[in-house]
Amino acid sequence: MKYRVNKTAMIAGLAICLTGVAGLVQAADEPANVIKYRKSLMTANTSHMGAMGEFAKGTVTFKGGFVEFATAINAISMQIPALFPAGSNTGAETRAKPEIWSKRDDFVAAAKKLETESAKLIVAAKGTDENALKAQITATQQACGGCHETFRSR
């Protein structure tokens, strides 16, 4: 009896797994398209950091849009693991290193770091302490660099 229950559960589990796999396969996008898509989002991140970097350097005092920029970076950061599905290491020109897939946990952790720092950046951008904002912009940039160091080639 016990044995049969387990067997049933196993079959059910297997069925669920297969459905899941089928779903994943169906959802998988063309690597070339995923690469293009994620590059667009990295461009967006870059541009926001560029604008905020000028403020952090003190070369402009203008800080318009920072809350929205930080919010967008935060939203993109949460997507990063999904933007690098297995198989998207080729198909179009990409600087993604194989470590993204071979050291997946580290990669996800690096993306998570950006999520954490950009969340703090939203708070800092809403606040009035300019020095805290500058420091947090730097911290966010360091989160970018921390991931690029291991996972992006030149």
Partner: peptide, 12 residues
């Protein structure tokens, strides 16, 4: 910081 003008942050 590693951040270059334009916003990219150097890697590698």
């Amino acid at each position: 910081t590693g951040a270059v003008p334009g916003g990219d942050v150097v890697g590698s």
